[in-house]
């Protein structure tokens, strides 16, 4: 290898301003994306105590809400809403299906509570067989385009259940299946008393 002669004096032009702005802008952008990404992983998309953004759930035939083929969350103000995410391929969901249905039959006559079953990434055929199999009667529908689950949880793992109070504020999050009817009651009753 040869040695080079020392570099001859060059113009003292530093990094041009536009290049500096570009570099720092890129870096800042990268850090912001990483930071927000990290914050989203660490925090749930929606927190207890916050208002739930509005959504519309299309409903399966035979599982309408008061005869309607779709239901909007904002139309349910004044009532306590239980949103349950499930799927026919989800084994743990099966263990809570009977308790949820029992709770629905308990609270439906009061007219103060609405249960919404959201069928998360499922096929209609299998979803409907599941509803038939567990004799479920409350309103149920598919989460078209996974838009509703995206409101509640980025990394949805079924089953998950969200309790929304009469003012549309999220009050309780249950990850995983309910162990008993009593557990559901213990969450719902205080919400009804408010």
């Amino acid at each position: 290898m040869t040695d080079h002669p020392p570099a001859s004096p060059v113009s003292r032009r530093s990094v041009p301003l536009w290049a500096q702005i570009l570099v720092w802008g890129f870096l800042l952008g990268l850090l912001v994306v990483l930071g927000i990404g990290l914050a989203r992983v660490q925090r749930p998309v929606i927190a207890v105590g916050r208002a739930v953004p509005d959504f519309t759930l299309p409903l399966y035939e035979g599982y309408e809400y008061e005869g309607l083929r779709q239901v909007r969350l904002s139309d349910l103000r004044g009532r306590v809403v239980l949103v349950n995410f499930w799927a026919s391929w989800c084994k743990p969901c099966e263990s809570e299906a009977a308790d949820l249905e029992a709770a629905w039959r308990l609270y439906q006559p009061t007219g103060q509570v609405v249960f919404l079953g959201v069928d998360y990434v499922d096929t209609p055929l299998e979803g409907l067989s599941y509803l038939v199999k567990f004799d479920i009667t409350y309103p149920n529908g598919p989460d078209m385009g996974s838009r509703i689950s995206a409101i509640f949880n980025r990394e949805m793992g079924v089953p998950e259940t969200y309790f929304i109070d009469r003012q549309g504020i999220l009050r309780y999050i249950k990850i995983g299946p309910f162990a008993s009817l009593a557990e559901i009651q213990a969450i719902l009753d205080p919400l009804l008393e408010r």
Binding site: E61, L128, S129, V132
Partner: peptide, 14 residues
């Protein structure tokens, strides 16, 4: 009527 229900739904859906 349940299986019929499903078939009906699927036919309608499709």
């Amino acid at each position: 009527s349940k299986p019929f229900h499903i078939v009906l739904f699927l036919v309608l859906l499709f």
